[in-house]
Design a protein around this nucleic acid. Structure first.
Lengths: 185, 185
DNA sequence: CACGCCATGTAACTCGTTACATGATTTC
DNA sequence: GAAATCATGTAACGAGTTACATGGCGTG
């Protein structure tokens, strides 16, 4: 009953949004899905083969001028049904994010508060960076791809990233204060 | 150079906070670390063995009345150094949470907005549940374990979970509105 | 006597990453 | 001719889950 092999769905989904080769799919993921999904070539190519085996996709080799040959994949009717059925299924479980900072924090009584505070500051900087990246992508989509039929949904997923990242940033600030006051005791 | 095998650090850390058997560690993780770290017996027992092999921990078998024998693990000086060195290292990378809802949303142009809205509502309910759980644990710690020397750090990690979960909840509400207005167009 | 809790452990499996291999073309 | 980009792929490894196996004790 448990739904697994999300990679299949991710790739089928990308086929419906206009990305037809393993290479362009990887680029798309790195550029836009990266905040909630990532994937390596080591997964992409074998999974594409699997999709063809299962009849969810079809391949054709396309030669290009000035570039190496590429394999273009297209979703089949059966693949569309498979994707749709997954899309309609509610998410059963919230993701549990393995968070190295929180794991360290959990055991931080062991060490100087100043070290812990530095850890949080470094984490904060990374959050700022991430937030900037998301906002950059969002602006890019609004400027360049706003007419793309998938664009509103892309924006929505980016907003999720921005909101939760900002919440984490605020937590950093609050926590630094808490640690300072713990120090004084 | 890359830091891996966090399980080792998690278990060493738990040894310093007073959990000395595989079984109690698992219980602790399920009860309190669960929002940012989880682990299975299939990881715990082999890793405990590994820690002993590396000299980071020592074991002794303790017999109990009315309960089966248990193996009690204790951190060694070398283990403490190993843990400390990890605690001091800054986190290099933010976690990337694989989020099934966002993946579905990304491809949701394919389907009725009403189906998508239902998805978000279900997700929202799960967020509420999660938030309640965190707040419950927090209250419990404040009431029962406030004198425990690790308690302030436990609270901090819980606050992270509460903050980011609430941000996600607000996003759900906003996104539902966005989807309603998309429908009208 | 069945169920639940305490307690430890392993084997098979799945998922995903990393490193490697190959090779064409274009641009500097 | 070196580097960057386009393009596809595999093998080895690592992390983690699941299912299974075992067995004692206490409670209803």
């Amino acid at each position: 009953m448990a739904q697994k092999n999300y990679t299949q769905y991710a790739l089928l989904g990308l086929l419906t949004t206009g990305y037809h080769t393993g290479y362009t799919m990887k680029q798309m993921i790195d550029g836009s899905l990266n905040h909630f999904w990532k994937i390596s070539y080591g997964q992409i190519y074998p999974t594409l083969k699997l999709l063809v085996d299962k009849g969810y996709a079809e391949v054709s080799v396309a030669s290009q001028q000035g570039k190496p040959d590429k394999k273009e994949y297209f979703i089949t009717t059966s693949g569309e049904a498979y994707l749709k059925q997954w899309l309609e299924q509610p998410v059963h479980e919230l993701p549990i994010e393995k968070n190295e900072l929180l794991l360290k924090l959990f055991f931080s009584r062991q060490q100087d508060h100043s070290t812990t505070i530095t850890q949080i500051e470094i984490y904060y900087e990374k959050l700022v960076e991430r937030c900037d990246t998301y906002e950059g992508i969002k602006k890019m989509i609004l400027a360049e791809s706003c007419q793309h039929k998938d664009a509103p949904f892309w924006i929505i997923t980016l907003d999720y990233g921005i909101s939760t990242t900002q919440a984490a940033m605020e937590w950093c600030i609050k926590t630094k204060e808490t640690l300072h006051s713990l120090k004084e005791e």
